[in-house]
Design a protein around this nucleic acid. Structure first.
Lengths: 192, 192, 192, 192
DNA sequence: GATGAATGAGGTTTCATTCAT
DNA sequence: TATGAATGAAACCTCATTCAT
C-alpha cells in the first residue's frame, strides 16, 4: 500500500468516524487526505466501497492491538478489565470499529451487510478467547454460553464508550457509567 | 393535534425508523402520510425539526407503556424481565426510541443534542424506579449506583434488540443473545 | 402535457439534434428550456430517457406531417418526390428523426434499442403506403420487395439530407446530390 | 511508424469503431493497445487527433483494397457488385470508414471537418472510376452525373451495411435489404 | 389548510491530460 | 521511449425548501 493510499484510507476513516457516512462527502475525504478528488477514486470503486475499506482497516488495527493482550498467565478478569480500558481509548478516535461491532452500520449500508458480518465475527474473537481462558482458570462460571456472552460484553463495553463520546458526558459521569458496567459484567460472569 | 398532523408525525417516525434520517426524504414522509409534500411543512420547521418531533412522540408512547408495568407488589426482577420482553417488541417497529436512548442519534443531529439529553433522562426513569423497588424488596444489591446501573441495563437491553433487528439474526441466535444478556444482568445486580 | 413539459421536450430535441447525445448536457437542456436543472428531471427518469422521449416526440410530428400527403388520386411518383422535398426541410431542424431512421442512434444508446426498433417500424409506414399505391397505379414495378425497398428509399433520402446538413455542402452541390438520388430511385422502382 | 505506434492506432480504430468517440476512453485505447495511458499521448496531440489519425489510417487501407478491383476488361456492373460485397465485409470490423464516408463523423467532431472532406473525396474515387468505365462500356447510362451518382451509390451501400450491423437484423433481413438496394441501384444507373 | 411544480445547491462519479520517474 | 499516479473540470442526479394557486 503506497503512502497515498494510506493517506486516503486514514482520512476516510477519520471523516466517516467523525460525522458518519452520509454527512461525509468525497470532497471532505480528499481534502483531509490532501489529494484531489479524483485521486480518492484510484483507491476505491465508490463511496460505499471506500467506507467498507476504512472500516476493515480500522478493525484490523483494533484486533491486532487486542490480541497482544491475551496472556494465559494473567487472570482473565484482569485482562478483560484492561481490554475495557483500551476499548475506550480506541473508540476515542476510531468510532468506526465500535459502530461496526454494535451493528449500527448495517442499517446504514445494507449493501455491505455481508462484509460486516464477517468482520464482526473476527471482532469478537478475542473476547471469546478471554472468556475461555477465564473458565479454564476457574474465575468465570463454567456454564457460560461463551459466544453469546462475548458478544454481549463487547456490546456493553462499546456502547458505553460510544455513548460517552457521543453524548459528551462529563468525565465523572463516564467514570460512573463504566464502573457500573463492569460491576454488572464481572458479577455476571464470575463463578459462584 | 388534527388528524393530518398525527398522520404526518406517525409517517415520519415510521420512515425515519426504517431507513434513517438521511435516507428518508421529505417525499417519502409525505407519501407515507398520504399528503402532499408542502403539507408536511405545515407541521414542522424543517426536516431536522420533523425528526425531533417524531422522536419525542414515540418516546412519550414508550414511557407511557412502561409506566403501567411498575407495580410495587410484584418482585422487581420479574418486572425487569417483563420490561425486557416489551422493549424487544417495541423496538420491532419503533426503532427510533432505541436509537435515541442508546445515543445513536446524537452524532447524527448535533443540533438537537440538548433536546435528546432531556428525552433520554425521561426514558431511564422507569428503570430507575424498578431498581429502587428491587433494593427495597431486598432482591437487588443495596450498594448499586442506581442511575448509572439503570442506564447500563437499558443500553444492554436496547442495543441487543437493535442488533437483532439490524443484523437479521436467526430467532435462535436472538434467543441465545437475550438469555446471555439477562443472565449477566440479573446476576450482576442481584444481592448476594 | 403542461407547457413546461413541452418546453423541456422541445429544448431537449433541439439540443440533442444539434450536438448529439453525449455533447448535450442536462444543463444545456435546462437553459434552452428556460427552467432550472431539477425541473428537467420532473419530466424524465434520466438523460437517456429524456433523449428517447425527444426522439419519440419528433417522430410522431414527422409521421403526422407525412400521412397528410398520401392521396390515392395523385400519382405515386409525384407523392414520393414531394415526400423527399419535405424530408429535407424536416431534417433541417429535426435531425433526430433522420438519425433514428437511419440507425445512427442504435450504436449510441444500446439501452433504447428496443424502443427505437418500434419507432422505426412506424417511420417507414408511409413509404410502404406510397409504394403500394404506385404499384396499384401501375407506375411502379409490380415485383418490388415493398418493405425492403421502402426502407432503402427512406435511408437514401434521409442520409442525403443529413449529409447535406452535416457536411455543409453548397446549395448547388446539394441540388445535384438530390437529383442524382431521385434519378436513381425513380428509375429503379419504375415499371418497365 | 514503430510497432508501438501501429499498435496504438490500430487499437484506437478498433475502440472508436466499436463504441464511438465519446464512449471510448483513452484508458480503453491504452488497454487495447497493451501500453500505458501516457504512451498513447506520445503518438497524438489529444483524443480528437487520435481519432482523426485512426480514421485516416483505415481509409487508406480501404482505398487500397478497393483499387485492386478495377480491371477495365471486366464488365463495370460486375465490378460494382463485387465492391458492394467487399464493403459489407469491410464495414464488419472497420465501421469507422463507413461512418466517415456517410458523414456521420462531421457532426461529432466539427473540428476535424475539413480533414474529413478531403478524405471523403479520396473515398469516392474508385466508384467514380467504375461508373466512368461502365459508361465507356455502354452498360451505364451516358447522361449520369458521375460524381454525384457515385456519392449516392456509396452512401446507399455503406448505410445499408452500417444499418445491418447497428440494428442487428437477422441475416435474412439483411439479404433482402441488400437485394433491394442493388435492384434499385443497378436499375437506376443502367442505360435503356 | 393543502397542494405540487419549480428551484438550485450540493453530492457522486468520470476521464482527458500532465509530469516526475 | 514508456509509465501510471495524480489532477480537477465537468457531467449526472437528488432532494430540502419555497410559493403561487
Amino acid at each position: 500500500m503506497g503512502t497515498t493510499q494510506i493517506a486516503v484510507l486514514d482520512a476516510a476513516a477519520r471523516c466517516f468516524g467523525r460525522v458518519g457516512f452520509k454527512k461525509t462527502s468525497m470532497d471532505d475525504v480528499a481534502a483531509a487526505a490532501g489529494v484531489a478528488k479524483g485521486t480518492v477514486y484510484l483507491y476505491c470503486e465508490n463511496k460505499q466501497d471506500l467506507f467498507a475499506q476504512a472500516v476493515e482497516n480500522e478493525l484490523h488495527a483494533w484486533v491486532d492491538s487486542m490480541s497482544t493482550l491475551i496472556d494465559p498467565k494473567r487472570p482473565a478478569d484482569e485482562i478483560l478489565t484492561e481490554m475495557a480500558r483500551r476499548d475506550v481509548a480506541f473508540v476515542e478516535d476510531r468510532p468506526l470499529v465500535a459502530d461496526l461491532l454494535v451493528g449500527a452500520l448495517d442499517g446504514l449500508l445494507p449493501g455491505s451487510r455481508h462484509r460486516f458480518v464477517e468482520l464482526r465475527r473476527k471482532g469478537v474473537g478475542h473476547v471469546v478467547a478471554v472468556l475461555e481462558l477465564g473458565i479454564r482458570q476457574g474465575v468465570f462460571a463454567a456454564d457460560l454460553d461463551v459466544p453469546a456472552t462475548a458478544r454481549v460484553l463487547q456490546e456493553m463495553q462499546l456502547v458505553g464508550a460510544l455513548l460517552a463520546r457521543r453524548t459528551q458526558l462529563s468525565t465523572a459521569q463516564v467514570r460512573r457509567h463504566q464502573r457500573a458496567t463492569w460491576q454488572l459484567a464481572l458479577n455476571g460472569i464470575r463463578g459462584r
